[in-house]
């Protein structure tokens, strides 16, 4: 997945869900964008930290995993609609695939995602888990 500098550049986004908001139109983007697609040169992007709360927009269960994810399979991946607006792709952890559905509320949680072999980078990121009601 590209080595140390590439991962290091995105640490704020992956560890704290730092996205961008266009000061001109108010639209929030995650992953962050340099240019607002709606306002382009009129726009002005500011960093914004997102809550990590949202609900599942769509999902799948990966049965045939890519390299680095073998031990996790089968695992749930989803597009989550964050309460600030943007949709974001992530893994849904701490759940059985059967308890996941479109509309399931989720919150961000910090996880070890994958690694580049035995000597490579270990990748961490915020992923998502279902929000459990208080017992």
């Amino acid at each position: 997945m590209g080595g140390v500098p590439r991962f290091w550049r995105s640490i704020d986004n992956r560890y704290r869900l730092v996205g961008t908001r266009c000061e001109n139109c108010g639209e929030v983007y995650f992953p962050p964008r340099v240019v607002c697609p709606k306002c382009r040169r009129e726009g002005e992007m500011k960093e914004v930290e997102l809550s990590g709360r949202g609900e599942i927009y769509t999902y799948s269960v990966v049965r045939v995993p890519p390299e680095g994810f073998e031990e996790k399979a089968p695992y749930v991946v989803a597009i989550v609609k964050l309460e600030e607006g943007p949709l974001v792709t992530g893994m849904i952890v701490d759940c059985d695939p059967g308890e996941i559905d479109i509309g399931t509320p989720v919150e961000a949680t910090f996880r070890r995602v994958s690694e580049d072999g035995e000597d490579g980078v270990i990748y961490y990121s915020l992923e998502f888990r279902p929000v459990r009601r208080e017992e």
Binding site: V62, V88, V113
Partner: peptide
């Protein structure tokens, strides 16, 4: 998108599955 889809273990079939 390698940085924001594949990074999270999303495969190509998983995108179309979603």
């Amino acid at each position: 998108d390698q940085e924001w889809e594949a990074f999270h273990g999303v495969t190509f079939p998983a995108l179309y599955a979603m």
